[in-house]
Amino acid sequence: MHPVIDVQGAVKQYGVGDAAIFALDGVDLQINQGEYVAIMGPSGSGKSTLMNIMGALDNLTAGKYFLDGLEIDTLDENALALVRGRKIGFIFQSFNLIARTTALANVELPLAYQGIKGKERRSRAMAALKVVGLEDRINHEPTELSGGQQQRVAVARALCTRPSLLLADEPTGALDSKSTHDLLDLFDQINAAGRTVVVITHEDDVAARAKRVVRMRDGKIISDTVNKSVSK
């Protein structure tokens, strides 16, 4: 069986000449179906860059990326939209909710683009919001929500399509320890249901929930270890 994520010799370069920055500088990473991976590393080490590549949101300067055996670079716009909408649930570091649009409408959006209509769409969005504990805030717009609440709306939006691959860029950055705990429990459940979860984090206790920890520095992977503490 081929891996869900297969990154080969990935290079991402910003700028040219003396100003060139290699956000990714030769990254190889394979993640199999059902894995729970934490990516750690200092700020600016290229974690978000790698995550955007894995989410089919950005392209590489050099190297190859296969998602479920499909080479992302070769897909056309329609195929990319399908991959992003159905396979991947992406949680951004900076939430990226649509302004002046209610929490419910934000969560419904990916379902709408999949052609899911009316009642079913609404009930699935409501269910996802309930999971993140925001059922009493469904008609609030992003500016009327706290940072942690916005983050939870973003999580609900990523979950409502039931993606097989969940990519989360510091999903607990704006959460208190209780909410963090709840969210991590949720990730555990999702992972237990056989879905692949990749989480970027700075926090050791978040990484401790993952089964595998990948550490990055200066655009390179410096260690890739199985997490012994989770082997209970």
Partner: peptide, 12 residues
Amino acid sequence: EIGIRKAIGAPK
């Protein structure tokens, strides 16, 4: 906004 919509699977 267009970036967000595309990221969550909106066709062009």
